[in-house]
Design a protein around this nucleic acid. Structure first.
Length: 303
DNA sequence: AGCTACTCCTGGTAGC
DNA sequence: TGCTACCAGGAGTAGC
């Protein structure tokens, strides 16, 4: 990217376009987009100052600022929905910052003299006069100082776009669990990085009902679902993720465009792109779930 | 093991 | 117009 955000765009995402309120929770494609767009602006930069606007964001730490100032951001990478900033102190590796955007978090680099707005929870001054800012209205996101990323990650399943996530292994993993597909795919220890949107989209593409027991998915269906997960994520990354009314934006302030490709997510009442029947919304495991009842028939209950 | 409920939060919306 | 109640939602945790 390299382009400075437009100051005039500052208020745009507070008052979004008319329409219903929908969260655009950053999932793997959105976080990957943030990592890609942020990388040229932060890698190689040294942190010259730090400001914490909401202490829980940094895990309650009182020594956060001191622990990051003087460090150089050596590498930025993504794992699941986490961003990892590897730090160096005087050319020696010195732990990392691990960020999770959760529901409404955004990260971008802006000129330090541009108003950070009311929701800036963490600001890191960089040695080029700009600031890396973590803006998060709902305060669920985190920017944690860690020795190693694993201290923050917990158990994470395979990265769905990497080789470790293969159709045979996926089928075997489904078969050895006995859980409904929807909550299982949302479980970060099963597959890392999927969220509500891309699970609904993938299940639709594979014509699987969200309540299908995982051990009752035939091999061929599992292979289809595996492919659907990958192609959905790849397509979304290509379009820089999904944006709704207000929240998710790329670090440059631009919305992603994958929301235009949604087949079922948020389309309740609208025609199914495959059969023309009405898309329905139901709640599965406390999550809004979108499906086409005709294309994704509910499995018969276990005998 | 796997489920449900609850917590963290706030902006937006529906209902009155 | 102005108020209140409710909702979404990732992830962690508690309880069954």
């Amino acid at each position: 990217m390299g382009c400075a955000p437009q100051p005039t765009a500052r208020g745009d995402w507070i008052a979004g376009p008319a329409g219903g309120y929908t969260d655009a929770v950053p999932e793997l494609p959105e976080v990957e987009t943030v990592a890609r767009l942020l990388r040229p602006d932060v890698v190689g930069r040294t942190i010259t100052g730090a400001r914490v606007g909401w202490r829980p964001t940094v895990g309650g730490s009182t020594g956060f600022a001191k622990s990051v100032v003087g460090r150089r951001i050596a590498v930025l990478w993504r794992r699941a929905k986490y961003l990892v900033f590897e730090l160096e102190h005087k050319a020696v590796p010195d732990g990392c910052l691990v960020a999770h955007l959760r529901m409404t978090g955004r990260m971008h680099v802006e000129p330090a003299d541009l108003d950070a707005g009311p929701w800036c929870r963490v600001a890191l001054a960089l040695d080029d006069g700009r600031e890396l800012r973590f803006v998060d209205p709902r305060k669920f996101g985190r920017v944690l100082r860690a020795r190693v990323p694993a201290d923050v990650f917990g158990d994470l399943g395979p990265e769905p776009l990497e080789d470790g996530f293969d159709p045979d292994g996926f089928f075997a993993a489904l078969a050895e669990r006995r859980r409904h597909l929807k909550p299982l795919l949302l479980d970060q220890t099963f597959v890392a990085g999927l969220g509500n949107i891309y699970v609904d989209e993938s299940l639709f593409q594979a014509r699987l009902h969200p309540l299908t027991p995982s051990d009752r998915v035939p091999r061929a269906k599992a292979v289809t679902l595996h492919g659907a997960i990958r192609s959905t994520l790849r397509a979304a990354i290509e379009r820089e993720g999904s944006s709704f009314d207000t929240f998710y934006r790329t670090p440059g302030g631009q919305p992603g465009s994958y929301q235009d490709q949604f087949l079922v997510y948020g389309r309740q009442g609208k025609p199914c792109p495959r059969c023309g029947g009405a898309i329905r919304r139901m709640v599965v495991g406390q999550r809004g779930t979108h499906l086409c009842p005709r294309c994704q028939p509910k499995p018969r209950s276990r005998a």
